[in-house]
């Protein structure tokens, strides 16, 4: 949030509001279009030339070896890169037709619409209830509506039955898998159209991983998912579309090698590098 990265004049943010009301928006709520997106850290370009369509209400997986810019691209989608000084984003990223890079929407509104779940379960040191209610309360949510919302979100994240009797207890008392599902529930509470997940299962055991994947599959159709994962089986299991990214040498920025329907990427990749990566030749 250093504010140097991407400037956003508030006047322009307002112009995006009427767009929200249109029928077209309601139909494709949560579709991203990336046009020649590049990201540089302190002047050094890390990712360049990423163009792709992330379809609404589907699951898109970003795969590739470490350092290929998957998480960097993911953080562009809710402008979390603003938090890091010296990060510059180029190109266009359209969320339902509105460019979020050039400041068509202010980051606060954007992050309410585009939720995020991080690699490490990062519950707040508050009660389970207050964790979920945190986002809605920022908007001034009423307490009686909140009870319903909290239950709804916890149910969607498949953790309601485990925590319904201890909503007032500290969320830090939950296991890692439960905490991560609580983080998903917390992200759902602002009713986002898109949920970004940055390796959500890499710190979890296989059973917890399975439950999170089940949640994703259940909520697909309600919202768009973009998931960064190291686990190719996971990408195969949960995603409709897969983007394969690669940074071949440190001299050149990372690029999007290819993207397409997950089945096609995994069974019939067009690029030899994709085939090699999936076969375990590197990365």
């Amino acid at each position: 949030m250093q504010g140097q990265a991407v400037q956003c004049p508030p006047a322009q943010a307002e112009s995006s509001e009427p767009h929200l009301e249109t029928q077209e928006y309601m139909e494709n709520a949560g579709a991203f279009t990336l046009k020649d997106v590049s990201v540089s850290y302190s002047g050094e370009t890390a990712v360049a030339g990423v163009s792709a369509d992330l379809k609404a209400k589907e699951v898109t997986a970003l795969i590739g070896p470490s350092g290929c810019g998957k998480s960097t691209i993911l953080r562009c989608l809710n402008r979390m890169n603003d938090m890091f000084p010296g990060v510059e984003v180029g190109g266009n990223i359209l969320l339902d037709g509105v460019d979020i890079v050039s400041g068509g929407i202010d980051p606060i509104t954007l992050r309410m619409r585009v939720g995020m779940v991080f690699q490490q379960p990062s519950v707040f040191p508050l009660s389970i209830y207050d964790n979920i209610a945190y986002g809605p309360r920022l908007l001034g949510g009423k307490s009686q509506d909140l009870d319903e919302l909290v239950e709804d979100c916890l149910r969607k994240a498949a953790i309601w039955d485990e925590v319904k009797d201890e909503l007032k207890e500290s969320a830090l008392g939950l296991s890692g898998g439960q905490q991560q599902r609580l983080c998903i529930a917390r992200a759902l509470a602002t009713k986002p159209e898109v949920l970004l997940m940055d390796e959500p299962c890499s710190a979890l055991d296989p059973l917890s991983t399975e439950r999170i994947e089940d949640t994703i599959l259940e909520l697909r159709g309600e919202m768009t998912f973009v998931i960064v994962t190291h686990n190719m089986q996971q990408a195969h299991r949960v995603s409709d579309t897969t983007l394969f990214m690669l940074r071949e040498t440190m001299e050149r920025p990372a690029e999007l090698v290819e993207y397409g329907p997950t089945d096609q990427i995994f069974n019939d990749p067009k690029d030899q590098r994709t085939a090699d990566y999936l076969a375990g030749a590197f990365g």
């Binding site: 979390m80 509104t109 992050r111 309410m112 991080f118 945190y134 920022l138």
Partner: peptide
């Protein structure tokens, strides 16, 4: 991670400091 999660939920810097950082 507390700060990042708070920002990711659409909190402003001051909301994050007040509700999360000071509390933690």
């Amino acid at each position: 991670t507390y700060r990042q999660s708070s920002y990711a939920l659409g909190a402003t810097r001051w909301q994050t400091i007040w509700h999360i950082v000071l509390r933690a």
